[in-house]
């Protein structure tokens, strides 16, 4: 379990991370989301004891990282943004070094084999790390974090540089690891977080912008019902008919998707589902509905809404007008 309380890091006057608190339960995968420079890596570096916090606490399995760093570090497998690989070592020699460095007590040969098989690097074990592709290097980095089977895994952008197929593989692997590890995973790829994580923490400008499950976050932001419909028929007539629906806030013809068929985007008052009304007017007028769906907010929308929202607020009081 990881407990973070009021974690703060100042670099001179600049607040890189400002009073972040959250907890990660055992067997939970937490997604760490935020734009570049939001403080994701800084937070992870504090959790792993690479840098110290200015104030606040990070507690790993009940051990404060600043009070007993060696014990706390022994619980953590860390994959930094740039994997700490010695380029002139072979994969096997490097992993053996990490095994010794972590003072690992597991049976060396079988554990080594397990980790290499898990990360699919068994076929390159004899090669020098500098000759490996980015994807392989990343997987050696992950293997390095897994050595010693630490209960907590902290992975900083683990799928960077992988091709789409490898990305899916690594995500599946992380998901599997999440069953018996506590995992923190940072990423700016939202679909990745959505696919892998139980819970999402969004960081922006060093502060916690959101902390909830991915589904809850979607629900929170999608209170208003927005619908997209693709209807075959005369545009003006359709628009007029839709405008007649009770409780509708706005409607617009978005785009002519197929010849003679427009897509209409509409928003009703919160809690009002207009899909049945659309079906009714289509029946009455003899139009065909080719597509009808509610517009669910993706994590991407939520992310933009949360991070942009803050930025707008910043601009209003003029404190942070020129940021980004």
């Amino acid at each position: 379990m990881i407990e973070v309380r009021d974690l703060t890091k100042h670099y001179g006057d600049k607040k890189a991370v400002d009073g972040i608190s959250f907890t990660v339960e055992d067997g939970e995968i937490l997604g760490f989301l935020g734009p570049n420079g939001a403080g994701k890596s800084t937070t992870m570096n504090m959790l792993t004891g690479y840098i110290s916090s200015t104030s606040g606490q990070a507690i790993i399995n009940g051990v404060d990282i600043l009070e007993d760093p060696i014990k706390a570090k022994s619980f953590i497998g860390y994959l930094p943004e740039i994997p700490p690989l010695y380029l002139d070592m072979t994969v096997k020699a490097y992993l053996n070094f990490v095994f010794d460095l972590k003072k690992c007590k597991l049976p060396r040969r079988s554990h080594m084999k397990d980790v290499m098989t898990l990360c699919k690097i068994k076929d390159v074990e004899g090669r020098l790390i500098k000759n490996l592709s980015k994807g392989y290097k990343q997987r050696v980095g992950l293997a390095q974090a897994l050595i010693g089977n630490p209960p907590v895994l902290i992975l900083d952008e683990p799928t960077v540089g992988l091709d789409p197929k490898q990305m899916v593989e690594i995500r599946t692997l992380i998901k599997r690891l999440g069953k018996n590890h506590t995992v923190i995973l940072s990423s700016h790829i939202l679909s990745e977080i959505q696919a892998v994580c139980d819970r999402v923490v969004i960081i922006d400008h060093g502060t916690l912008a959101a902390n909830d499950t991915a589904t809850n976050l979607s629900n929170q932001v999608t209170t208003d019902h927005r619908v997209i419909a693709r209807i075959e028929g005369e545009k003006a007539a359709i628009l007029q008919a839709i405008r007649g629906i009770e409780g509708l806030k706005y409607v617009r013809a978005d785009m002519e998707r197929e010849p003679g068929i427009w897509e209409y985007e509409m928003e009703a008052e919160p809690g009002r589902d207009v899909r049945r009304d659309i079906n009714r007017i289509a029946r009455e007028n003899g139009w065909d509905i080719l597509m009808l769906k509610t517009m669910e907010m993706t994590l991407e929308d939520i992310f933009l809404k949360i991070t942009m929202g803050e930025r707008v607020a910043f601009n209003k009081d003029g404190t942070n007008g020129g940021a980004k």
């Binding site: 014990k71 570090k73 022994s74 860390y78 930094p80 700490p84 990490v98 460095l101 390095q144």
Partner: peptide, 8 residues
């Protein structure tokens, strides 16, 4: 970073 986050 690997050395400084290892339990040594």
């Amino acid at each position: 970073q690997g050395l400084l986050t290892a339990p040594v």
